[in-house]
Design a protein around this nucleic acid. Structure first.
Length: 453
RNA sequence: GUCUCCGUAGUUAAAUGGAUAUAACAGCGCUCUCCUAAAGCGUAGUUGUGGGUUCGAUUCCCGCCGGGGAUACCA
């Protein structure tokens, strides 16, 4: 998951795979699975031939070091402008990519350098989001693992030559043919995905191999999973494509080349800034405004991303992403902070007694809203399993909202810190349970749960 | 053209085939001498369309309408 293309900006379109993938990892980890987080970087392909070609013609080392992504993107854009009038550039770019595939030293070194510089920028955004990976083995990692499958496809009579290229005909399965090698012999995305799947089976021996990739690539996944099956690998259907809908902007589809793009880092920064203003306005006594603003602002962006069914398309709107009212991350975090505040006011002795769960008179919590809250807390583990089975973090998000709503009603209806000691302890026990459930729920989404806000 | 996904209050969305379709936002009102009002409460408003299966359909099947995506040398 995540898997951005190196040398291209990390924009709002990348947030979905990143954040959904992270949450699915967290959910499966919580369910007790051994998990490996792989960032299949888009660090290979014809585009890098173009990029290197552009760098050689118009590039400058200092500029790249100063601002890697922006500069490399300029080269890429310039290439596409120039190629209109100089079509020979395309041939040159293809040739460079072929050299790269053959491991020519000079091309490989430039490419490695681009990759490192890009990764530095991505890491900054991942740090903001609090997201880590176990492996950054991207497409390039499989560059030397593909010839084996081209041979295997030939042996099993699956490969056909067509217009100079090599294809697997999938017509009988209702799919268009899959292009395995281009007419110049170089490989494609699909070839690398087949190599990657086999590598992962051999290296990790996975139970499930999950791909959190946009629904635009549905056909691509159907094709290569079918090919893996035709190659005779019985685990083909343990590879699962988990698709999600498209993010577009109000003025159309995002397009890096046309400058129609919203940078993820800008969204996160603005959300944090706005949170800071709200904190100042409300004059909340927090120990560390910067940390709280970061937890809440970034949490808000992640939460919103995970609140709808992943398959739905949506249009990115600033006022929506910066709206913190209603069923939002800040609402849930606020509820958690309220619960934390109750525990502080209750005092250590009461909290300790309630935590021990010994001698609690549960008959003292009998209001309707207490019951509704308790019911939701009880259902939570089953909800997490359901979310895992369906690869759908929004199921957790919805339930966390429901729990927060129930807690706020309970908070409003019931006086919690009452004089009656046993009633107070019983109610605090419920508060502790709710606070833990909300914090755990947020954790499964990759969101912090501040004690104060 | 073919394949595929989506269509629910003004808006954004919920709903393993089950009871009066559920929330939030935006409206309109109300509640801080009271544990954090980033809260709570009230109010009005919804299944694109035509069939079918079923005791029962937002959900499953077929047609239509509207929108997105894919459809071999990008990834």
């Amino acid at each position: 998951y995540s898997s951005p293309n190196i040398a291209k900006p990390f924009h709002i379109g990348h947030i979905r795979s990143t954040v959904i993938g992270n949450s699915i990892y967290l959910i499966y980890d919580a369910l007790g699975y051994d998990t490996v987080r792989i960032n299949h970087l888009g660090d290979y392909g014809t585009q890098f031939g173009k990029m290197i070609c552009a760098y050689r013609h118009w590039g400058n080392k200092e500029d790249v070091i100063k601002e890697p992504i922006k500069t490399l993107l300029e080269y890429y854009t310039k290439f596409h402008v120039e190629v209109e009038t100089h079509p020979e550039l395309d041939d040159e770019a293809r040739e460079i990519f072929t050299k790269l595939e053959h491991g020519e030293k000079e091309e490989t070194e430039i490419w490695k350098w681009f990759r490192e510089e890009s990764l530095k920028e991505f890491t900054r955004v991942y740090d903001m989001l609090g997201i880590k990976f176990d492996s950054y083995a991207g497409e390039s990692f499989y560059s030397d693992k593909m010839p084996r499958f081209v041979e295997e496809l030939k042996e099993k009579n699956l490969l056909k030559e067509s217009e100079g290229a090599h294809i697997v005909d999938l017509e009988e399965y209702g799919m268009s043919p899959a292009l395995i090698t281009k007419s110049d012999g170089s490989t494609l995305y699909i070839t690398r995905d087949i190599a990657a799947a086999v590598y992962r089976k051999e290296h990790y021996n996975f139970y499930k191999n999950l791909y959190i990739v946009a629904s635009q690539q549905n056909l691509h996944f159907q094709q290569w999973i079918k090919i893996v099956e035709l190659l005779g690998y019985d685990w083909a259907h343990d590879c699962v494509h988990i698709p999600f809908g498209l993010v577009s902007l109000e003025d159309g589809t995002m397009s890096t080349r046309h400058g129609r793009v919203v940078f993820l880092e800008d969204v996160l920064n603005r959300a944090v800034e706005q949170t800071k203003e709200i904190i100042k306005e409300k004059n909340v006594n927090t120990d560390n405004i910067d940390q709280t603003a970061k937890d809440v602002g970034i949490g808000a962006v992640i939460f919103q991303e995970l609140s709808n069914n992943r398959i739905k398309d949506y249009v990115f709107k600033w006022d929506k992403v910066l709206n913190f009212d209603g069923e939002t991350g800040p609402y849930v975090q606020y509820t958690h902070a309220r619960a934390a505040s109750l525990l502080r006011n209750a005092g250590d002795a009461v909290v300790k007694k309630a935590t021990s769960l010994e001698g609690i008179d549960y008959s003292k919590i009998c209001g309707e809203s207490c019951y509704e809250l308790a019911k939701l807390l009880y259902k939570f583990p089953a909800v997490i399993e359901d979310a895992g089975e369906k690869y759908e973090p929004s199921i957790v998000t919805r339930h966390v909202v429901d729990m927060a709503q129930a807690f706020n009603r309970f908070y409003h209806d019931e006086h919690i810190l009452v004089d009656d000691e046993s009633e107070k302890v019983a109610k605090i026990a419920l508060v502790i349970a709710a606070k833990n459930a909300i914090a755990n729920g947020l954790a499964l989404l990759g969101i912090a749960a501040p004690e104060k806000m």
